[in-house]
Design a protein around this nucleic acid. Structure first.
Length: 728
DNA sequence: ATCTCCCGCCACTCC
DNA sequence: GGAGTGGCGGGAGAT
């Protein structure tokens, strides 16, 4: 809701409180979480200790614009007084257990809200129904309590790019109090942040805040590690399996149970290898490691889209865990936790991949891709960052992966490596499109026939992403671009077969970019490249969810997934990856996105309704994905390729270049938007901007790949503005 | 019904 | 033995 408004506003006003927007959008789109405005909190430098203040802030302060009211209420509500609460109480009367629970809750709340909450709540009761309603409204929904929001709040407290001189220490207790949550939750956040080196543990209850300065390095390191581990291959493998299964099913044989076999294979692979060095201490399972691995999957993925199930399977394998279903579930839960934090960091966004079977939750990397540029310390970072991973993963995992791959005819590690190299060499610019896609992926996928379609539905956000990606500059426009980051939901529909292809292709693409950059810098692991190998080009097409439209406007494609292949879309791509459909429904909050999406996006993420709409669009008519044009590809490629060269500067440059390129390519119409936001912090615009830029830069490439064009016919929902906006 | 994921128990570590 | 950490999964809100 607000988002929409915001978006528009944003377009108009570059910076508004993107905080709110961003967050909300994101949340809305993606999850429930609402996000908090970083901005308000952001300013806070180090930490604050005032629990009280915090509580107040939450409630009263401007911190959370959107939330504010709600939160206040929530806490206040403290359930007890709301109708619901009453029911609970009644129930609890009957059940001691429940009663206890309630008590506990009450205790907690106070912490958050403090006593005030109670009093308030009481007052509210007195007030009457209206009060109740308010409470209910405000009642802190789960979203409000979400880890993502919490993380945003957390991040808002610290500068994204703190001065080297200033060192901020974080007191877990203080933070927990100030944010009104249990310390346990803070650990969840800190562990993920630590995995990216945004923070480091200094002492008990003490963490040091580093900010995003080293993020590029860390990502680079992770990328390399991921390549070494051949996560691409693993993902492709899993996808193939899935596809195969699907095929069977389609064919008629359904194997629901089948999965096991597949899974087992994976597991098997992993297990043997993993004697694991390090013990299996808790650390091995740590959220920290999972987080890094999860990030690696994105960095290695061509499409940059990772489904939770695939990620969970890979992680399980590595951990040697047995294929247990329960473990899978647990892993997925953890991944959600990690994803929430990463989302608040604006590194990923939630999307959905729709396979023939159904939709699968997935996340798309929207963070920097070219960080490769900053070569410098790749090694260092990795070392520092992932010592554990390195040890474990490297050795073990790699081995496993290789073995696994080896087992599967489809994967040839060697080839992969070669491929990769090739890609690197050749790919830089045009590659993607080359049809190879079909051929290339065929390698692995080959068998699969398929066509995968991905549909991207971004609810609003998804769109935003696309937009963002596509349109680089615009994003910048949006100051906050907040929403985009968080919000987007998109769906990618993929055919199983396509999937495989995808994986390959996507990876290729990414690998490309990455490799290019990376390779230049550091040796890229062949493995990653390997997967890509030839495919890359096609991959791009296929992989990309969105189609890029040459210049001019975007086309809306209707038709669904199947259509994907539709002629219109890029020829080659279709095959490969099958066409992807992107629904453009992006929830994206960002204006730019909207622009692009224009019609599609109309709905704004904010409201479910809008989302729904978007989805609908997606579902039904979606924009088809068009194969990228060479030009675009080049654009895209360029960024990636460019990567190597400049690191930081690159970003800016990229952005611009991309923008220009994008504009050229897309014409403006499609423009994506861009920018987005930063991660979450609202407070420092500058920082945010930077981050956004980074993101954009990274994103851009990808974006470029996908362009959505909306047909004029489409709605024109609010878009009009959009077009002009960024593109111009 | 499924997807998300909050919540907090409780095991493990460390001091 | 207590405090700090954080794995884990039940179960409930959101879709």
């Amino acid at each position: 809701m607000e988002v929409n408004c915001l978006t528009l506003k944003d377009l108009i006003n570059p910076r508004q409180p993107r905080l709110d927007f961003a967050i909300e959008d994101g949340e809305n789109a993606q999850k429930e979480n609402i996000f908090v405005d970083l901005s308000r909190m952001a300013p806070k430098t180090p930490i604050k200790n005032e629990p009280i203040d915090l509580s107040k802030q939450k409630i009263f302060t401007p911190e959370r614009n959107p939330i504010t009211p709600v939160k206040l209420v929530d806490r206040q509500q403290a359930e007890p007084w709301t109708p619901t609460a009453n029911l609970k109480m009644l129930i609890s009367a009957a059940s001691p257990d429940i009663r206890d629970r309630e008590k506990k809750k009450g205790l907690f709340r106070p912490i958050e809200n403090k006593d005030d909450a109670f009093t308030d709540s009481l007052q509210l009761d007195v007030v009457g129904d209206s009060a109740v309603d308010e409470f209910e409204k405000q009642r802190p929904s789960r979203k409000q309590k979400s880890l993502g929001l919490l993380c945003q709040k957390f991040l808002a407290r610290y500068p994204s790019y703190p001065l080297s001189t200033e060192k901020t220490t974080i007191s877990l207790d203080e933070v927990a109090v100030s944010l009104g949550v249990e310390r346990r939750r803070i650990y969840d956040i800190v562990n993920v942040l630590e995995s990216l080196h945004l923070v480091s543990r200094v002492a008990k209850n003490q963490y040091g805040w580093h900010g995003r300065h080293s993020l590029p390095k860390t990502l680079r390191s992770l990328q390399r590690l991921g390549e070494e581990q051949k996560y691409e291959e693993q993902m492709a493998h899993l996808q193939q399996k899935e596809l195969e299964l699907m095929d069977y099913k389609l064919g008629e044989r359904k194997k629901d149970g089948c999965p096991d076999s597949q899974d087992q294979q994976l597991l098997d692979f992993s297990e043997p290898d993993y004697p694991s060095s390090s013990a299996n201490s808790r650390k091995d399972k740590s959220l920290r490691i999972m987080s890094q691995k999860f990030v690696m999957l994105f960095l290695v993925s061509k499409t940059k889209i990772v489904t939770l199930d695939v990620a969970a399977k890979i992680l399980i394998e590595e951990s040697q865990d047995t294929p247990d279903h329960s473990k899978f579930k647990t892993k997925v839960r953890r991944l959600y936790d990690i994803a929430n934090v990463l989302t608040s960091l604006a590194l990923i966004k939630k999307v959905h991949v729709t396979e023939e079977r159904g939709r699968k939750p997935a996340f798309k990397w929207i963070g920097p891709v070219d960080f490769s540029s900053s070569d410098e310390e790749l090694v260092d970072v990795s070392a520092s960052v992932l010592p554990e991973l390195k040890r474990e993963t490297y050795g073990q995992i790699q081995v496993c992966a290789k073995q696994r791959l080896a087992r599967h005819g489809s994967f040839n590690t060697v080839q992969a490596s070669e491929r990769i190299q090739r890609k690197v060499n050749s790919e830089p610019s045009s590659p993607y499109r080359e049809e190879q896609g079909s051929g290339g992926y065929s390698l692995e996928i080959g068998s699969l026939a398929a066509v995968y379609r991905q549909k991207i539905e971004d609810s609003s956000q998804g769109k935003a992403f696309a937009g963002k990606r596509v349109m680089p500059p615009s994003s910048s426009l949006d100051p906050v671009a907040p929403s985009p980051t968080l919000s987007a939901d998109s769906e990618y529909r993929v055919n199983p077969l396509a999937h495989q292809v995808f994986s390959v292709t996507q990876t290729d693409l990414q690998s490309f970019s990455m490799q290019n950059g990376l390779n230049a810098q550091a040796g890229v692991s062949p493995s990653s490249a390997a997967s890509d190998g030839e495919t890359p080009k096609p991959a791009l097409l296929t992989g990309q969810p969105l189609v890029y439209v040459p210049s001019t406007s975007l086309f809306m494609l209707y038709g669904n997934v199947q259509e994907g292949p539709s002629p219109g879309s890029g020829s080659g791509s279709e095959r490969d990856g099958g066409s992807l459909e992107v629904t453009a429904s992006e929830q994206s909050p960002t204006p730019s996105v909207q622009k692009r999406l224009g019609e599609e996006r109309k709905p704004q993420e904010e409201e479910p309704a809008t989302k729904r709409q978007s989805r609908d669009y997606d579902d039904s008519p979606l924009a088809l994905v068009m194969p990228k044009k060479p030009s675009d590809s080049t654009d895209i490629a360029s960024p990636n390729t460019l990567g190597p060269g400049g690191s930081a500067p690159l970003e800016d440059i990229h952005m611009e270049s991309q923008l220009s390129a994008a504009e050229q390519a897309s014409g403006k119409a499609s423009a994506n938007c861009c920018v987005y936001s930063e991660w979450g912090n609202s407070s420092r615009d500058a920082e945010v901007e930077k981050s956004s830029k980074e993101n954009e830069s990274t994103k851009e490439p990808s974006l470029l790949q996908y362009l959505y064009v909306q047909s004029p016919a489409v709605t024109g929902s609010s878009d009009p503005q959009e077009h002009p906006t960024h593109t111009s």
